[in-house]
Each structure stands twice: as C-alpha cells, then as structure tokens.
Write a protein that binds this DNA or RNA. Structure first.
Length: 802
DNA sequence: AAATGACGGGG
DNA sequence: GTGTACGTCATTT
C-alpha cells in the first residue's frame, strides 16, 4: 500500500511506531513494533571496549538491562573515518540507562546518537520524508496495517489535506478565566466547504442560524468532539490553541468527565509539554496552532507587527477586518444576553474563520518546510529555524554515515555562552524622519558566504591548508581548499534547489495552484538556507562552531560595507544598514534608477551572493540602531525595537504611541505628533482622562504572601483582600495610580476600591505617556520639557523646527 | 546595583 | 527533543 505520510508518532505504552498516511481520500495508519534505535561509542581501543560493553548488565525495575548487540563499525566524524562501537539496546528506553553507565567506563571518549527521539530516529533511518510518499507492506486490519517490513520512500504527490478550526470563549468574572470554575461559554467551528457553527449552552434567543444550543457545557464539549469526528478533518487548527484553548478544554473536560476523544482512532488528546506551552497531539490529525506559525514568521523577520493578536495578523496577512469584542464585556454578555450576546456569538465564529483562513494561507509553507527538514508537520510548525536546520543536518549526516554530535551538556552550554565574537555590521542611523526610501536586502548573503568560502567545522583552520588556505577577512583564520565541508555541500544543494524552483516559477501563472505550491517551496528553501548561520552561533546547537560563525559575519561585514559604498557612489544616501540590509533615500532618483543599481551590484557580486529589493517606503523614522518604524505603500506600519507598550501599561500610553507613529508616518508631521502629546499631557493634568484609559492590568502570578518584592499590583491585590474580596493567583489586578505620599506601590488602588481618590497626573505623564513616546520624539529634536510645558508659555524647539 | 517580577498569544 | 523560553523593562530592595 502507498500513501503520503503526514504524521508519525512513537507510542510509549505499546512500544510501537505509528505512521499516518493518506492516499486519495483514504486515511490509514501503519504500525511497526520492531524498531530499535542504536547509539555509538567512541573509545581508545574499540575492540577491547566492545568486549567489556557486551557484558554490561544493569539491574533496574525488575529486569536486567543489557545490550542486544555490540559490534565495531566504521563511521565518519566531521568527514574523517573513525572506528566506533555500535550498541543496540533491547528497548528504546534502555538507551539512557546504558549510556549513563558506559559514559563512566575507562577509555570512553564520546557517545553519539543517543539523544534522538525514537519517532524522529525512525523517519531518518527509514529515509522517509513527511508530505512525501511511503510504501508499506503488511497485514491490513480495517484502516490499520501491521508492517512486515520497513516502510520505503516513494515519489507521490500529496493529496489535499482537509482542515477545521475551532475557538473557545470563556467566562472570566475574575479578569482572567480559571479553568477549575469558569465554564466555556461557546465553541466556534469553521471547516472547508463553508461549514460554520457555534455551539453554546446558554438559551438566549437568537436569530443567528449557525448557532446550536446544547443542554449543558458537558453536552457542548461532547457535541464538539462528535462534529470533529463526523467531519473528520486531517488538520485541526486554532489561534494560540497550544497555550490556551486546548489546555482549558482539557481541564474543563476532566472536571465535567467528558472525553476529548478527538483522535482518528478514537483516542483522547495527548498533552506534550515543551517550551512554555503544552503542545497537544491529536492522533491521526495534525493539530496546528496558527500562532506558532505566525510567531515563527515574526522570528525570521517575515512579518513585523506591534502585537500579534489574531485581529492584527488577520488584517496584516489577509487585508481584512474582523469583528472585535472587549474581553471585559464577556461577563455582561453571558449574564444579560441581548445584543452583546449576539455580538459575542458572531465574534466567536469570526475567530474560528480567521484561524481557518490564516491556516490556508500559511500551511503550504510549513508543509514544504516539513518535507525539506524531514520531520512531521506537527513538530515542524513548533520548531525554531535553528532546530529545523539541525534536523535536516541529522538526516543528511545519517545518509553520509556521519556520527551525530550530541546536544551540549549544561557545562558546555555555559562555556559557549561566554564565547563572544564580532557580529554583523550595524550602521548608526541618520536619526529622524525620512521620506522616499528604498530598502535592499541581502537575504542570501550568509548562506552564500558559507558555500563560496567553504565554511564548516571540519574546514575551518584545517591542518592540511595551514598557510595556504583561504583567508578570512580581519581574522587569523583560514578555510580548507582541498576538501569540501558538510555544511557548504548541504547549503549549496538547498540554494541550487531554490534556484531551480525559481526558474520554473517564471513560466507559471501567478494565480495557479502549481505556482503557489512552488513559491512556498522556494520560500521554505530560503528560510532554511538563511538559518544555517544562526545555528552555527547558537550555543545549544549540535554543530555549534564559534570560529565558523565569526568567519561568516566577517565576510558579511566585508560585503555590506562594499555595497554601501556602491550605493553612495550611485547617488543614493544610505541612512541605515543592519547586517544584510540597507535603507537608502532615493535622493531624487527614480525607482528605475534603484532597479538599475540593483542589477549593477548583482553583476559585480561573486557567485551566489545576491542583493534583493525589499521594498519602497514613503516614510520612515529612525531612532537608534535596531529601533525604527516604517510605512509601506499600502499604508502598513512596521515597527522595530520600539514596541514595548504592553498589557501592564495604561491604554493612554498605548494610544499615544500609536497616534504619534501615525502622525509621523501617515502625515509626515512632527508638529502634529508633538501636538498630540501636548494635548494628552494637558488632558491628564486637567483630570480629564477617563478611568478606562488609566487602568493598568497586571497579573497576580503567585499567592500574595509569596512576594519578596511588593510591586503596585501586589499592593492593589492586598487592598482587595482587605476589603473582603477573594484574591488568588492568576487573577488580573486592575489598578490605578493615585495622588498622595509614598512609593508608587503604596499609591496603587484597585479600580473596585478607587472611590473618589484622584489619579496621579505626574505618574501617568512621566511613567506612562512620556516613556512610550520620548525615544521617538527625542530624535526629532524635542525634549520632555518641550512636550510638557503649558501652551503659550514656552515654545521650546518648536519654533526652530517649523 | 542587584534582585524581582511581568510581558507575550488567549479570555 | 524524556523537556520547563527568553530578552526586555519597571520597580523594589
């Protein structure tokens, strides 16, 4: 049987690998209980070591742990052949026990391949790639195949994967919802083919035809499970589902004794703890948290927003607005019904629809990444770019018989953290507001440098080319001229594949399915290629190499500085440059001139190194290195390094910052920006600002007694408790800074107990509004005094700037 | 100056 | 990844 592999998982309890495949409309899974990963031991005398290792017997948990097979084999380490022991355990979980024991034996130098999770080891050693074909052989029972031989990779076009998204809305009377007592009010669902549904258990009258009212919260959850199983999507998505929806749903289901049997085999969801969130696995389906994909794109700099809310991301990527709903109004809607209730139902569905549409928009990129990296989409959508490169290298290393370096132990990691090196060139910006800019981007610079200059842990400062190797600019390093490194080979393969894809793209209709598919592929290849450098300098990476990373940045500085000189000579004015990008003023020149400059530079750059047009920007404001804001031709604002206004800031600060950036970038008016600030400062002074603009929301993370440092929200929480309110960890404390004596904390009052106390204008001016805007306004020539002085009394710099 | 605690996405 | 981010900022100590 053949199918496209879309998920793979190792099931601990049964010690089986499970492969999920799709062929046409048919989904089935293959089970393999025979796979045992192996690991390798490098020692002084392999033959002698083998005789000792094969006799190992460790008693533990009522059984004896011993290797099933020990033999000496030839493998490669950074390209050099080495003789090592191959150790096969009886069970995967014995690996760690055996490894810890062997590590302490005399004559043992290094151990390899012991820290690769079973399911990943399986895919790599079978040579399988997700979103590609696999041929399985064995006995068929229903939709289950018991494998009689290892699966084999085959060429197969991926069938379409069906999707469904969901979103829950939760009752939150305490500010932050508490899963142990606050119920789920509704569950919104959206699926392919226009399926739209909101499940709820509140019997308010509504004319909305997508609403289905159930008897209880438990019945609602059960109906949710039923719908998912009936419609049977391959992919289940949502926004921030790893962090919020699934953990919440899981806890409510536990309390209500409802089974979240969303798996294709009838199994319940499985929570996998990782990073700071819990990734939820749904067997036989791919659970994708759209936020994880968005976060990834933000990390690699593909999208840049002030806040990554569903609303903002939806607007930015799809250009559409969606209804909003204040989270402080949930309680009212739930308790009183009426118009607010209807709006909440609509909002809930719109969230599910937005997640679905974003899923459609972003999925193809991540499926391509999955294919390239060789790991399943469930894992790949949750990986950092560095992890992706690492898994690709592990698979490539396997094919070449390379030993896989272990992830560094804590001590090595600490040592690496201490090692610093000169990074990229970052130009001090020409500060202030500029108009008509063109931004060029050197995205393929670092991978091209790795390929062109053969940078690799095995080629850097090789002994065979001492004195004759290729020199690294400004560093006492050289690279090998005789042997090609592992990394340069892999990177070159990726860059060439991308080049081929881009060539094929030229002849295709931009709206066609094939174009979109191939475009996702070239994008994925670019992302992977660009991530090699980051991995070389990441202290937790297996192929970490400080000298390599240092050499890459040195070559990078060399090329960017050359390009800056070229741009200046061509008559542009470079106002900013960071690593691989230059921001230039058109300086009276045309767009065609900019494009001609680009061609000219590219003709003169060596080999694979290529400058690209990032875009034209009508306006931009530069504050310091790494801090600037730009507006593109569609009116989209991107902010870098200035976005520090968060939930624990008053709305007045957030609104002022936004308004100031808009005045500068949309209207090009520093006077308007200054006027906005002055007006707000005056309104604060006159006591005209409404309470909701002044409230600061901060979460109480611990019981009050546990705090060693008593911040404003802790004092406010204490006051709430003294007034007889229930206060517990997880609550969002809403407080206002009031006038009076004492520290900031001593003057924090919860909104509920504010009474007729006056807010503190000085605090809101000096600790909220001004910090949010001063970094920007200072570079435009304004001082705090200019912006806070009373109108008519002092003109400050305004006079000179006009 | 150092220590402490909160932010993000979600509701 | 048999694991517990991470870099930045405000306020307290």
């Amino acid at each position: 049987m053949m199918g496209v592999l879309f998920d793979a998982e190792y099931v601990d309890e049964t010690r089986e690998m499970r492969l999920w495949l799709k062929s046409g409309e048919r989904v089935f899974f293959a089970v393999d209980g025979s796979f045992i990963p192996r690991f390798f031991v490098e020692g002084e005398d392999p033959e002698k070591l083998a005789r000792v290792v094969e006799k190992i017997e460790i008693r533990g948990n009522g059984r004896i742990i011993r290797p099933v097979s020990v033999r000496t084999v030839e493998m490669k380490r950074l390209g050099n052949t080495v003789k090592v022991l191959e150790v096969v355990p009886e069970q995967p979980k014995d690996i760690q026990t055996l490894r810890r024991f062997i590590r302490e034996m005399p004559g043992v130098r290094q151990i390899y391949n012991y820290d690769i999770p079973v399911s990943k080891y399986y895919l790599i050693s079978c040579g399988l790639s997700p979103m590609d074909g696999a041929e399985v052989e064995g006995e068929m029972k229903g939709s289950e195949v018991i494998l009689s031989a290892p699966p084999k990779p085959v060429q197969l076009t991926a069938p379409r994967l069906s999707m469904m998204s969901f979103d829950i809305e939760v009752y939150n009377p305490a500010g932050s919802p508490r899963p142990e007592k606050d119920p789920i009010m509704m569950i919104g669902l959206a699926g392919d083919g226009g399926f739209r549904r909101v499940l709820t258990w509140r019997r308010f009258p509504t004319k909305l035809d997508f609403v289905e009212v159930l008897e209880s919260e438990k019945k609602m959850i059960e109906r949710f499970v039923e719908i998912v199983r009936e419609r049977d999507p391959d992919i289940l998505l949502g926004y921030n589902t790893d962090f919020f929806d699934f953990p919440y749903l899981r806890e409510r289901a536990r309390i209500l004794k409802a089974k979240l049997a969303l798996g294709r085999d009838g199994s319940e969801i499985v929570a996998r703890r990782r990073k700071f969130a819990t990734a939820t696995r749904v067997r036989g389906r791919i659970h994708i948290d759209v936020f994880a994909m968005v976060d990834f794109l933000a990390t690699i700099g593909s999208i840049r927003l002030v806040h990554y809310t569903l609303e903002n991301v939806y607007k930015y990527l799809l250009g559409k607005d969606k209804p909003d709903f204040e989270f402080t109004k949930f309680v009212e809607a739930w308790e009183k019904g009426g118009e607010a209730w209807e709006r909440l139902l609509v909002y809930n569905l719109s969230d599910a629809v937005a997640a679905l549409e974003l899923g459609h928009e972003l999925l193809s990129l991540f499926l391509e990444l999955s294919k390239i990296v060789g790991q399943v989409p469930f894992d790949v959508v949750r990986m950092t770019p560095g992890q992706m490169v690492e898994w690709l290298l592990i698979a490539e290393g396997f094919r070449r018989g390379e030993l896989i370096p272990a992830r560094p132990v804590a001590e090595t990691y600490e040592e690496r953290l201490e090692e610093t090196y000169t990074g990229a060139y970052v130009m001090e910006p020409v500060k202030g507001l500029h108009e008509n800019l063109v931004v060029f981007d050197f995205r393929s610079l670092y991978p091209s440098i790795i390929v062109t200059h053969n940078i690799d842990p095995s080629t850097i400062n090789c002994s065979c080319c001492a004195g004759t190797g290729e020199r690294v600019p400004d560093l006492p390093y050289h690279t090998c001229r005789r042997r090609r490194g592992f990394l340069p080979e892999v990177v070159e393969k990726i860059l060439k594949a991308r080049f081929d894809v881009k060539k094929r793209l030229k002849d295709l209709d931009r709206e066609s399915h094939e174009y979109k598919q191939l475009n996702a592929k070239q994008w994925a290849l670019k992302i992977i290629a660009n991530s090699f450098y980051g991995m070389l300098g990441y202290p937790k990476a297996r192929w970490y190499c400080k000298e390599c990373a240092e050499s890459v940045t040195s070559f990078g500085r060399h090329y960017i500085k050359w390009t800056i000189r070229m741009a200046e000579e061509a008559g542009f004015r470079v106002v900013y440059s960071d690593t691989d990008s230059l921001h230039c003023l058109l300086n009276g020149k045309s767009r065609d001139d900019a494009m001609r400059f680009l061609d000219d530079v590219n003709r003169r750059l060596p080999g694979m190194i290529e400058l690209e047009l990032e875009g034209f920007y009508p306006r931009a404001v530069y504050v310091t290195k790494k801090r600037y804001a730009m507006i593109d031709e569609e009116g989209r604002i991107t902010v870098k390094g200035l976005e520090f206004v968060r939930r624990d800031w008053a709305a007045i600060a957030k609104h002022t910052q936004e308004a100031v950036l808009r005045a500068l970038l949309e209207d090009g008016s520093r006077e308007k920006a200054a006027r906005i600030i002055k007006e707000i400062v005056e309104r604060i002074r006159r006591g005209e600002v409404s309470l909701e603009d002044l409230v600061i929301y901060t979460q109480l993370k611990m019981p009050i007694e546990s705090y060693r440092s008593i911040g404003p929200h802790v004092v406010a929480a204490k006051r709430l408790r003294e007034a007889g309110r229930e206060v517990e960890p997880g609550m969002i404390i809403a407080y206002v800074q009031t006038r009076g004596r004492g520290s900031i904390s001593e003057r924090a009052y919860p909104v509920e107990l504010l009474g007729d106390r006056e807010y503190d204008p000085d605090y809101y001016i000096n600790h909220q509004v001004l910090p949010a805007v001063m970094r920007i306004m200072e570079v435009l020539g304004y001082s705090e005094r200019d912006l806070t002085s009373r109108p008519g009394r002092q003109r400050g710099l305004d006079f000179f700037l006009q």
